[in-house]
Write a protein that binds this DNA or RNA. Sequence first.
DNA 1: TTGTAGGCGTTATCAT
DNA 2: ATGATAACGCCTACAA
Lengths: 353, 353
Amino acid sequence: MADRLTIYEVARRSGVSTATVSRVMADGKGFSAATRERVRATAAELGWVPSGTARGLASRRNGIVGLLFPDLGNSGELAEESPLYVDQVIRGAERAATSAAHAVLIAATHTTAGRELAFMVAGKVDGLVIMARCLSEPDIAVLSNSLPVVVLANRYSGDGPDFVGADNRSGSRAITTHLIHVHAHTDLAFLAGPADSPDSGERFAGFCEALDEADLPVPDAPIASGGFTETGGGAAVAALIAEGPRPRAIVCGNDEMAIGALRVLRAAKLRVPADLAVTGFDDIGVAQHVRPALTTVRQPMRALGEEAVRILLDRIHNRATPRASVVLPTELVIRRSCGCRVRPTSAEGGTRR
Amino acid sequence: MADRLTIYEVARRSGVSTATVSRVMADGKGFSAATRERVRATAAELGWVPSGTARGLASRRNGIVGLLFPDLGNSGELAEESPLYVDQVIRGAERAATSAAHAVLIAATHTTAGRELAFMVAGKVDGLVIMARCLSEPDIAVLSNSLPVVVLANRYSGDGPDFVGADNRSGSRAITTHLIHVHAHTDLAFLAGPADSPDSGERFAGFCEALDEADLPVPDAPIASGGFTETGGGAAVAALIAEGPRPRAIVCGNDEMAIGALRVLRAAKLRVPADLAVTGFDDIGVAQHVRPALTTVRQPMRALGEEAVRILLDRIHNRATPRASVVLPTELVIRRSCGCRVRPTSAEGGTRR
DNA sequence: TTGTAGGCGTTATCAT
DNA sequence: ATGATAACGCCTACAA
């Protein structure tokens, strides 16, 4: 921990110039086997760790991809609930990056304190994956103007950055169709998330498509909104069943709201799925543990992370490719809350379709 | 994406020197409110993203902590099984880092290809958290010689780097004592992991302590080793029950081996826990889904990650503190495989002690 | 309050 | 095959 060891010292001790040391360390060409060995030996002997920072500055390549993800529930408890969502993306990103000899710089970003961190991260990476709801669109535009950016799981309205997302619409259509065809429901309601959520919009669209395909009446708008939260979903459903003729099935925009719905319905002495079917979206961890186990749609989070980084690396190495827009398939997970009677397998707790 | 925008351009356009721009961007003092606004305005207008790399070089601070973790099962399937272990550490690290305005640079490291990446990471961060089995001890020594290092979940034999780990010994003692006192077992066996695993060693030590406290005979060595893998554990138990008088309870060094044991015992028509009690260690995700649900010991992975980064930041900002060695408590998770009859709660699938 | 200028530790471009 | 040396983009004394 003495004075920082630099390339100069290594060069001096091995009797060569810094340029040669640099070449050797980069595995480049242009040196004899003898010098190569000599340099590597003294480097190892000295325990020299080249400054990646200086390297990055000089070479304009950092070997790092950034990943900005939303700071889900800094409240602590909530974070316990949906660990998989973001974690899976991180792992996927890490895998894709590692196999290309890149590291991943991660940071949680959310409106306020996040912005600064986001820019800090942007200044240290070769490219950036930005998850939904991490940054405002103007900020994304600024960043994507100075480095390659891939927007993840969030349709970006401009046509600048590449985009990777899950097929929300098809997933929603599939689960709705399941309720219609398998369980013969004709009176379904869609519980939406925040009005400005593109995901919620896509899922509602899929819901409508399924109704339309079945020649059922298509609503103009979701029956209510639950803000993607458990309490919000519960409140919306409470209002719903209080105010009049209730639907036979509630297609929730995400799992949290579905779980809130289950809670409220149980309190109201309504049986799920006997009196009312309920479905979710996302397949968060608790979905398979609630009673009844939640029928839902799983997003391929790991694959999303991988794909995002793959596209990013592509663009880093070849900037002039056409804009990519990848939509990965979702997966219907049948459990009990739709009315099916499946016995959960030990590992999955559900049946994939 | 034109020519990279630099501080010079921003300085020129706002009619000040680069030093002033630097000061303003760093929120330092020493400039009038007017200049401040002017600089920030042109910076925003130009969409300038300061180079974190250059910043890091010049200031010798990167605002990044590195996290090296083992590349669990690049085989793909295995990775599906124990997602929480590493993910939780990552999230914990991320939280601690974020709240100190740092980002986290992560990379999977495992013997071969990892070494290079590890050094690359080391060159770009202010400090490094190294998880167990990521890097050889000599390599750790080299790195800890040129930047602050915290070793995680792996007792480091030297006295260089700070250490953070879970109390393997107490956890193992607790689960063994549970088998002895609650279930009145007197004939217990310990199934070890790899011989060179400090964790396995600690857990065996805790096992022995419990036996000793109960005045039961203390073995010199584990009854067998299962290499911490499911197949290894299964094979070891198969041999065990084939060769002679079988113990009444098997304390496994980790969950994977315990799950292998359950499989083999079922195949052998032995009932768990009626004929034989089995316990694990770690509380991986599937532990609560196997039949019978696995009684095990949970490590506070999230907290470990947080603590590791906290200590690291401490040392980064104040190098001359005494070596830290933090051991976090583990938690006994009672399920069915020990003989208890608990009804799992929906959220936890176990009872914590 | 503001500017000048010398690093920070590499890489890369010329030479040789 | 090797060596000077100018970038790389910013920070930070030191001056003014």
